[in-house]
Amino acid sequence: MTDSAAQSLITEEQVRQLAWLARLTLTDADVAHFTDELGKVLAHMERLAEVDVEGIEPTAMAVQAEGNVVRADVPRPACAQETILANAADTEAGCFRVRAMLEESA
């Protein structure tokens, strides 16, 4: 596959949309670069279309699970609130403080 054909597998517009979905702020230069690179990687992945998978079950985990794993529902000590909050950039009244998620109006 030529480079131009590989690049056609994904457009800059799609990369911008992916970056938004994945919450990644990219520069225009990043977008151009990732469009080229993701095109090359996807071109390689296209090879999966060659494989006959008719009637094949998907594998999520390669090692058979040893049955459902359960334990007694007994309370036990957890770590202190301030320990969990220690790595947070912003806290208030023992909580993580975040920005408003919804606009006030509308």
Partner: peptide, 16 residues
């Protein structure tokens, strides 16, 4: 960094 971002976007794409 760029390698992490590339893989996140690739995964987002193939799962979309």
């Amino acid at each position: 960094g760029p390698e992490v971002q590339r893989r996140i976007m690739l995964g987002t794409y193939v799962l979309s």
